[in-house]
């Protein structure tokens, strides 16, 4: 047992580098997220598709050695559409994870009025925001591009580097498309919470942002025949980007340029809201 002398001693030890201090926040954030068993179970379930992908890739590559199972999968081709499907499935799981984790990042500090306390530390406001965004970004990366690239590597190890050279677009698309989705989810989750001020209302607003504009956009596309209105539908926008990045024909009715602009606009608007709301003091004008 440590015996402590009850007196104050100034600190004269070493310090961490200023540009790495914000990394403290995702460490605490991840610990807080995985403290919930329900969340840990849900997150673990998110690896079902990558595991299935590993199995399918293995069976496909060893079809000739696996008898009847191999014969069933003989006609199945692992190409960019397979990886896009994988990413679409993982993106839906990532949305649920973002819905749970994203608003929880700043809600408690906002509700408790603890922002002045945290922002009085030498990490800077954007360091704090980056730290708070990093937690869901890391979790979502673990569900999207990291297992996606692992599958690509696995496929390459079984099929040879020629396959990778012929399909270089796949890892690039997996990485870029995943980050579009991750950026949207993280920024919108943080912005929703910053506006709503509490975890549960932040989640509600985050969910509504994905549903309400999408419904209005789809209704406008159907009623007025304006496909451009789908730009407010986040799933249609990201779906367009996925198809475009993977080199598949775009079937959503939106042009990739509009989709890129829409994603940038959503991210920009969210960043603006975060900038206005995540401040140590609220100035009443």
């Amino acid at each position: 047992m440590t015996i402590r002398e009850r007196r104050y001693v100034p600190w004269d030890g070493r310090w961490t580098r200023p540009w790495v201090r914000w990394l403290v926040l995702p460490r605490y954030g991840l610990r807080a997220a995985f403290r919930s068993r329900l969340f840990a179970s849900l997150y673990t379930m998110g690896f079902a598709a990558p595991l299935l992908g590993l199995l399918v890739i293995y069976v496909d590559a060893r079809a000739d050695q696996l008898g009847q199972i191999g014969a069933v999968l003989a006609g199945f081709e692992i190409d960019r559409r397979t990886f896009r499907l994988f990413l679409e499935v993982q993106s839906r799981i990532a949305f649920v994870v973002g819905l749970i984790v994203g608003p929880a990042m700043v809600a408690d500090e906002l509700a408790a009025g603890a922002l002045p306390l945290v922002l009085a530390r030498p990490i800077g406001r954007w360091g704090y925001i980056a730290g708070k965004l990093a937690t869901p970004a890391l979790l979502l990366s673990g569900l999207t591009w990291i297992p996606g690239l692992a599958l690509v590597l696995f496929k390459t190890s079984l099929s040879g580097s020629a396959w990778l050279l012929a399909n270089l677009r796949i890892p690039a698309a997996l990485f870029a498309a995943s980050w579009c989705w991750i950026a949207l989810i993280c920024l919108l989750a943080l912005a929703s919470t910053a506006v709503a001020g509490s975890k549960s209302w932040g989640r509600g607003l985050f969910f509504a942002l994905f549903v309400a504009p999408a419904a209005a956009g789809r209704a406008a596309a159907t009623i007025a025949g304006l496909d451009g209105a789908l730009a407010v539908d986040l799933s249609a926008t990201v779906g367009t980007l996925y198809q475009w990045l993977f080199g598949d024909p775009v079937t959503t009715g939106l042009s990739p340029a509009v989709a890129v602009l829409a994603v940038l606009a959503w991210c920009g608007a969210a960043a603006l809201v975060i900038d206005r709301r995540i401040r140590p003091v609220r100035i009443v004008r």
């Binding site: 030890g13 961490t16 926040l25 408690d108 408790a112 002045p116 306390l117």
Partner: peptide, 26 residues
Amino acid sequence: PETDAIVPGLTGVRFVCLMGELAGLP
């Protein structure tokens, strides 16, 4: 600060430790 600014969900020692790490302590 004057306000009741504490980060909920943390024990006293974790809370103070977090603040120390944010200030630059290893």
